[in-house]
Amino acid sequence: MTLLVSVVVAIVFGSGCYLLLKGDLFRVVAGTVLISNAAVLTLVGAGFTRGAAPIRPFPPGSEVSDPLVQALALTALIIGFGVTALLLTLAARVYASSRTVDLDQLSQIEATREDELEEAEA
């Protein structure tokens, strides 16, 4: 079970990293969503117990799932949502000002700006 969860976390995390390394803005945002999901799954997986939902009255005889990791996961999910929403609009903003979602072009623009800065100073 632990191994299974870990493998899924690894796959989700790895896919997220792959998207981060892709060439466009929105794939990067999608990558962070996946990585965020991987972290939340890790949190839930960090629970000590598995069983029924931690809501009273507990079903007799069965173990109750660890409630703390659920609360943490909820908080982390929501924080991830807030941050990703901001990231998404930042991506839209970057697109609006440079009219491209291609990261290669964006980094070229950055490099050009820096070179201009250097020349202006020299």
Partner: peptide, 27 residues
């Protein structure tokens, strides 16, 4: 805006790594 995007993406990655560490610490 471009810098903020870079800033957010890289630091979010760091944050999520930290979150995984928190999960590990709890466990």
């Amino acid at each position: 805006a471009g810098a903020a995007f870079v800033f957010a993406v890289v630091n979010l990655l760091g944050s999520f790594l930290f979150l995984i560490a928190v999960a590990g610490i709890y466990h």
